[in-house]
Each structure stands twice: as C-alpha cells, then as structure tokens.
Design a protein around this nucleic acid. Structure first.
Lengths: 124, 124
DNA sequence: CCAGCTGGTAACCAATAGTTACCTGATCAC
DNA sequence: GTGATCAGGTAACTATTGGTTACCAGCTGG
C-alpha cells in the first residue's frame, strides 16, 4: 500500500481528503453548531433532533457516531430507563467549529449574491 | 435566545443549507484551492484535471459547471479547434477560498489527532 | 480517410442519503 | 397481568448522488 502522505491534499490516498469530505457535510456543520452554541455543555439525542429540523432519525444517529468515532464528540449514556444518550463536543470538536462557523457565515452572507446570479443566468 | 431569527439555517427550506452542502465537498474545496493558488488567473480544463489527481473527468466538468452556475467561477471558451475551456475564480469564488482554506487547514492540522484517536478506540 | 485532439455527456454501476418500520425493556394506565 | 409508551438504535428499502467507461463533435494532420 502506498503510505498515506498526510500533508498532501493532492495525493488521492491522503486521509486528509477523506476527512475534509466527512467534515464538510451540512449535518456535521449543523450538529457542531448546535452543540457549540447550546447553553449547556451537552445535549441529549432527542434535543439535538428537535434543534435540527429536517434531519432524519438515522442521519443524526449515524453522523453522531461518526463524529464520536473521530473523537469530535463525546457520547455519554445515562443509565435510566429508557437510557438517554447525551453528546458533547470534545476540544477537538470545538476547534472544528471555528472553520465551520466561517463557512456557515460565508454561506449566509453570500447566499443572496448567488441567488441573484442564478436568477439572471439560469442557464445552469 | 432561541435563534429562530437569523437561524435561517435551521429552516429546512432555507437555501443556505443547500448551499452549505454544495460548497463543502472535497472537489469544490480542491478546485477552488487550485484556482486560487494557480500562478495564472485562469486554468484550462485539462490543466485543472492534471492538478487534481483522482478527480474524474465527469466530476470535474460537473463541479465546474455547478460552480459557474452559482457565479463562483467564470467559464471562457477559447474558439480554437478543438475549443479549449478556461476557468477562473470570480470575486465571489475567491471570497469562498477563505473559509475553505480554514477548513482545509483544520483538516491538515488535526488529521493526526483524529487518526490517533481512531487507533485507540476503533469501536467506531 | 482514419486517428487524434478537447471538453462534454449518456449509460451504467457503486456508494451514499433518506424513509419506514421495528426492536429493546422498564414503566405506567388499565 | 396486558400492552401502550418512552428513547435511541438499526435493518431493509428507495432515492439520490458519486464515479467509471465509452462515445460524440468536428477540425487537423499523416
């Protein structure tokens, strides 16, 4: 196997590329935002679901587990009945919120421009 | 606070959400990077293809057209035979490189942490 | 007159996103 | 007791993407 050259985004084998793809999705962006901006340090599954309208049960579960597997969120099972699961950002996850916030911010700020442009030239 | 206000992002109908998803993909990130960091203001299709190893013919074409439709790149057809097509970032596209660079940078910087974490807890 | 160039695209296959329905298993209403 | 109900997860599917391959236009050069 070709050794993965971490720093080289231009190497197709570079894991950083895959990471970039995992981390740029809208659900990651939204989950991280919600967790980062929640009043409390952690949120329950149901609360996350409530705060992210439109996300499906499965995608939330799946995305959270992927984030947990990458060490971006911490998963805590409360031994109640039925058990409740709580998630919180790790330091690493919090650090991801910075570039993600910049991206969300860009999207919010320039949505209008893009919309206008698409209006004018709907050629696709 | 409860941000139903500028929480446009939290409305599933909000186009900013879709934009976020379009713009966070690895190919967009790489194309914008390549165009932003090219020596010349524009690059030909073939040159882009060469500079982004691993991208397929189709994905490059498709992504470029989507970027052009959003007004992020400019598409110029050189009337030669066969015609060559050149792409350059618009101002809007260049502005996107900033948050994208931050994200790429984060990915490069923290890839190691995530890798280490996954080693230790491969439960994911 | 056929091979070859460029960029695009149609046809197809593989991998995701998203939907629906169901599981667990303790508790409460009856 | 019976069973509806909670929370979170997941299996089974379908819809939508990503990605591969092969081909096209239409002029040029051998």
């Amino acid at each position: 196997m070709v050794p993965a050259r971490r720093g080289d985004l231009f190497d197709p084998a570079c894991p950083t590329r895959r990471l970039l793809d995992r981390v740029g999705t809208k659900w990651v962006a939204m989950i991280v935002k919600v967790l980062a901006e929640a009043g409390s340090p952690e949120l329950g599954f149901a609360e996350l679901e409530r705060r992210i309208p439109g996300i499906s049960h499965k995608m939330l579960s799946q995305t959270l587990r992927s984030l947990a597997a990458d060490g971006l969120v911490d998963r805590r099972v409360e031994p109640s009945t039925p058990p409740r699961v709580h998630y919180r950002l790790t330091d690493l996850g919090r650090s991801l919120d910075e570039p993600l916030a910049a991206l969300r911010d860009w999207a919010e700020r320039h949505m209008g421009d893009i919309d206008d442009f698409a209006q004018r030239a709907p050629s696709g």
